[in-house]
């Protein structure tokens, strides 16, 4: 049997579509973990990235923090938090947020830094207050890059949220972990396919969000 057969067998089994271990439930759980982690990470990464980018300070500190964040192993952090905190969503959220903050932070900082300085100078010269300079001049131009940082973070979260199952939570990782222990490859492949599918959906959502929010004047080359 190859991977496609496993996937086919998994999805054609009607038992996988119902109940607390059914695909809809697991999918919803996975989306919930991912969304929460992404929101928390964005709430940290975006403001810090925007402000440091705008004032052009702290770039080195930021790069160091981001590298440190990347260096912390998500899985290791999960196990450690589980040992320390015990069962719950928190031990899962911590590694996911640590994973997602660096790409958001660094990309946002870079995006704002790389905005052409002359419109910014013009805006200040016309008497635009600093908050407006940031939100109405810099952010709209930096938006494609900022979104790409969020997208990278979202994909990593979706893929990594599978580890929640290791500490007895739900999500699509359930199929992968259970499949591993039960030597049920059907489940593993099915779960992996679902995660990859969710990642593709995430890509599509970000693509649509970029179409909707990025000005046609900025979009051209990209």
């Amino acid at each position: 049997m190859n991977v496609l057969d496993f996937a086919h067998a998994f999805f054609s089994d009607t038992a996988h579509w119902h109940g607390y271990d059914g695909i809809p439930t697991r999918f919803a759980e996975h989306v919930r973990y991912s969304l929460e982690a992404l929101l928390i990470a964005a709430a940290i990464g975006l403001p810090v990235g925007l402000l440091t980018g705008h004032y052009g300070r702290g770039g080195n500190t930021l790069a160091l923090l981001a590298t440190a964040g990347r260096a912390l192993p998500s899985f290791g952090l999960l196990v450690l938090m589980f040992i320390w905190i015990g069962f719950g969503l928190l031990p899962v959220m911590i590694p996911l947020v640590v994973l997602a903050v660096p790409p958001i932070l660094v990309t946002t900082y870079e995006a704002i830094r790389s905005v052409d300085p002359s419109p910014v100078d013009a805006a200040r010269g016309m008497g635009m207050p600093e908050t407006r300079v940031l939100l109405q001049v810099e952010v709209p131009v930096a938006l494609p890059l900022i979104l790409s940082g969020l997208r990278t973070a979202a994909i990593q979260i979706v893929s990594t949220a599978t580890i929640a199952a290791y500490v007895s939570l739900g999500g699509l990782g359930r199929y992968i972990i259970d499949g591993l222990y039960q030597k049920d490859y059907e489940k593993v492949v099915g779960g992996a396919t679902l995660v990859a599918g969710l990642a593709l959906v995430t890509l599509a959502i970000f693509w649509a969000a970029a179409r909707l929010t990025v000005s046609p004047g900025v979009r051209r080359g990209t």
Binding site: V3, I155, S159, T162, I176, I177, V188, V195, A196
Partner: peptide
């Protein structure tokens, strides 16, 4: 490459065990 990246490492490992 993005799709490959989206496949959780664990799932990847398990499939490759075969």
């Amino acid at each position: 490459t993005t799709v490959l990246y989206a496949i959780p490492s664990l799932a990847f490992f398990v499939v490759l065990i075969d």
